[in-house]
Design a protein around this nucleic acid. Structure first.
Length: 477
RNA sequence: GGCCUCAUGGUCAAGAGGUUAAGACGUUGCCCUCUCAAGGCAAAAUCAGGGGUUCAAUUCCCCUUGGGGCUACCA
């Protein structure tokens, strides 16, 4: 059987779109599930859209997502070059061949003439005006330096059909299609042409891409047929939406992989979440690594309808990854975010990391969660009041001085020992330990809600700072 | 406008001609608890509408409605 070869063919726009990332993922999963090859090809035929540094964004996004390609511009391969601009001459040769086969023709129409073809509805369809120009005349005009393009020659009648593995049979009348430009006046091919030539030359067996190509695929099939090439198998993927009516867009900053990374999402969670948008594995698993997805991947689990990107669920998945991380790994990933706060200079971030891990969903939640460690917010006595705990400022006034004494006499400020000591203290005072902890925690932090309990916070603050804070709190009572 | 295409809770979704129509996120409640998280348990919430076909349709067909895509010298 023919080897499965899939490709991801992005344009270097300077950012990795999450929709594109999912397409890449599915192409990768399909290839790897079938022991095939996954190829990266850069589609940079639009010179005006070239963005500096865009290639690195593509390479690094794929690699850090675990999508290692077998062939590509930076890794080589037997079917290169893998960057379309470097294949320019090849396309022109094939275009000329297609002209000889009757599948294309030279066109010399001016922009003005093209615009004059627009009808009352604002639609325009090329009228095959240049089809009647003989090859000899065309070549003469070209030799004279006239600007030209090459257009595909689409039949005026008939129906074309193909099988998409997701959407089934797709039928389109040729009359609904247009004689699109294959080679632009700058000599570069358009996507319409380059993708066909490259997919064939690179022996791509399965073309996996978004639904935006679902209804234009007949045009590509026409070319495969004209050249006498075998058509690839098509797998079109539904769109990822921002909401019911809008796509995930670069413009709103909700589509960029890197933006999510800097917001404190981790790569594994993003790739995992994006995998779930439009695909459900047979075993209904939700948290999966890329290798596990390779194992489970199956086209029948791909849906046909667009799905809405839900950041709330992504946050949850991200938190699952965070919680599952060992402390060392968590600390490593969290460090850049700790460094956005002063805490890392003042305290042992290891201890902070421990109490924070299950209390954040994304890493950028860290600075605000630990701010109270840097400086205790001002607060009023009303904070001591808690009906459920049965605590109030009176109780605080009563017990805090003696708690202070106990703390001053406690040699070891570790969580466990503090817990034991203070529990005993509560008993001595004739109150519930939770009441003591509650009041103490408020005094220490000035916050109704904190990550970690009183003793954990004492442990982090250390004896000196804890006592200093407690004294201040007592003075304010 | 024309063509292609899609339609299960708020969201992601499983499902199949006969089911109490899964599961997850979120929401709500309870338990646990040194506050809050985490964890445990529970609850509310879905087959767009109308016609067919059939003993039976959410599942198959048609229409309507609604959504998405294409309709570039962008990919």
């Amino acid at each position: 059987m023919e080897k499965v070869r899939t490709r991801f063919a992005p344009s270097p726009t300077g950012f990795m779109h999450l929709g594109g990332l999912r397409t890449a993922l599915y192409a990768y999963l399909f290839a790897k599930h079938n022991d095939g090859d996954f190829i990266l090809r850069i589609e940079d035929t639009d010179r005006e859209r070239f963005v500096e540094g865009a290639l690195d964004v593509i390479y690094s996004s794929l690699k850090c997502s675990g999508l290692n390609y077998d062939e590509g511009p930076d890794v080589g391969g037997d079917y290169g070059p893998y960057t379309q601009s470097e294949r320019k001459d090849m396309y022109l040769d094939y275009a000329k061949k297609l002209i000889d086969l009757g599948g294309a023709y030279y066109c010399f129409c001016s922009k003005e003439r093209l615009e004059s073809l627009t009808d009352e509805n604002g639609n325009r369809k090329y009228d095959k005006h240049c089809l009647k120009i003989s090859k000899e005349e065309a070549e003469r005009r070209i030799a004279n330096g006239e600007s030209y393009v090459i257009r595909q020659n689409i039949p005026t009648e008939g129906t074309s059909s193909y099988e998409d593995l997701i959407y089934g049979t797709i039928e389109v009348d040729y009359s609904d299609l247009e004689d699109n430009i294959l080679i632009k006046s700058d000599g570069m091919p358009t996507y319409n042409f380059a993708n066909v030539i490259d997919d064939h030359l690179m022996k791509i067996s399965h073309v996996i891409r978004g639904t935006e190509y679902l209804s234009s695929t007949p045009k590509y099939n026409l070319m495969y047929d004209a050249f006498g090439w075998k058509r690839p198998v098509y797998i079109h993927l539904p769109t990822i939406m921002k909401d019911a009516t809008r796509k995930l867009s670069k413009r709103y900053g909700d589509a960029n992989f890197d933006d999510f990374i800097s917001k404190g999402y981790i790569e594994e969670a993003i790739i995992n979440y994006v995998a779930l948008l439009g695909w459900c594995p047979k075993n209904n698993a939700e948290k999966m690594t890329v290798p596990e997805m390779v194992e489970l991947f199956d086209l029948t689990g791909i849906s046909k309808s667009p799905s809405i990107f839900d950041e709330v669920k992504l946050r949850w998945l991200n938190s699952e990854y965070l919680k599952a991380m060992d402390d060392e790994e968590f600390l490593k990933r969290a460090t850049p975010f700790f460094e956005k706060s002063e805490v890392f200079k003042l305290y042992d971030v290891r201890k902070i990391a421990k109490i924070i891990k299950s209390r954040i969903e994304i890493l950028s939640d860290i600075p605000e969660k630990v701010f109270f460690l840097v400086s205790r917010p001002d607060f009023n006595e009303a904070l001591y009041e808690n009906k459920k705990q049965k605590t109030d400022s009176q109780l605080a006034k009563q017990i805090l001085p003696s708690v202070l004494t106990t703390l001053e006499q406690t040699p070891s400020f570790t969580n466990d020992e503090l817990f034991a000591t203070l529990s005993a203290k509560a008993e001595e005072l004739g109150i519930k330990s939770r009441q003591l902890f509650y009041v103490l925690r408020i005094a220490l932090t000035g916050l109704e809600v904190t990550p970690g309990g009183a003793t954990e916070i004492l442990d982090i603050l250390g004896k000196e700072e804890s006592i200093k804070r407690l004294k201040t709190a007592i003075e304010l009572l």
